[in-house]
C-alpha cells in the first residue's frame, strides 16, 4: 500500500531504557573475584571429556558433568596467542551504556597460555596491518582501585614481542 504523497506521516520516538543488575552466579562470581582481587584469569576442565572452559563453567555443556571444584581450577594467561579477530569501523549505540562505540574497535579470540581455552576480549591494536593471527598478546588490567569484578577489569589485550 502506497501512502498518498500529500499525507504527513507521523512517527513516535521512544527509547527503552531498563536498568539491570544481573546475578553472575557461581562459579562466574569467583572468576570475577579473582580478576578483581588478584589479576588472575582462571579456567577449568571437564573431568569426563577434558574440555576446557574460560571463564570456568559449573557444568560441561557437552556431557553435563560437574566441573566446578575450585581446587581443580588452573590460572591461565595473562599472555596468550591470537586466534582470530575483527575490527569494527562502523560506530553503533552500545545498548548496555547508551553511548556510541568509539571506532575503530577490535576484538580477538585469545588462546591463553596454560590451558587450551579461548577468551574473547578487546584488542589494544586496531590497525589491521598490525594484527595477525598467531601473534602474542597480553591482558592489561585496570588499576586495582578501578576494578569492579566484571570482564572489563581487563582493559584489553596488548601486542607483545617475545
Amino acid at each position: 500500500m502506497k501512502a498518498k504523497p500529500q499525507l504527513e506521516l507521523i512517527y513516535l520516538d521512544m527509547t527503552l531504557k531498563m536498568p539491570f543488575k544481573w546475578n553472575t552466579g557461581e562459579p562466574l562470581g569467583e572468576f570475577f573475584r579473582e580478576l578483581k582481587a588478584n589479576e588472575k584469569i582462571y579456567a577449568n576442565q571437564c573431568p569426563t571429556c577434558g574440555r576446557n572452559y574460560c571463564p570456568p563453567a559449573n557444568i560441561c555443556t557437552r556431557d553435563h558433568s560437574r566441573c566446578n571444584e575450585k581446587d581443580k581450577w588452573v590460572a591461565v594467561g595473562p599472555k596468550g596467542t591470537l586466534l582470530t579477530f575483527f575490527i569494527c569501523e562502523q560506530s553503533f549505540l552500545i545498548p548496555t551504556t547508551g553511548e556510541m562505540l568509539e571506532v575503530p574497535f577490535s576484538v580477538g579470540l585469545v588462546m591463553l597460555d596454560g590451558a587450551p581455552v579461548v577468551l574473547q576480549h578487546c584488542l589494544q591494536e586496531t590497525d589491521v596491518e598490525k594484527i595477525k593471527p598467531g601473534m602474542r598478546v597480553e591482558a592489561v588490567f585496570k588499576p586495582k582501585e578501578e576494578r569492579k569484578g566484571n570482564i572489563f577489569d581487563i582493559i584489553h589485550f596488548k601486542t607483545i614481542k617475545e
Binding site: 520516538d13 527503552l16 570475577f32
Partner: peptide, 17 residues
C-alpha cells in the same frame, strides 16, 4: 559477596504509526 554485572538495556525506536 555475591557478584553482579550492572548495566542497561537501551534501545531507541522510531515507530511509524
Amino acid at each position: 559477596e555475591p557478584m553482579f554485572t550492572e548495566g542497561y538495556v537501551i534501545m531507541p525506536y522510531k515507530y511509524s504509526v
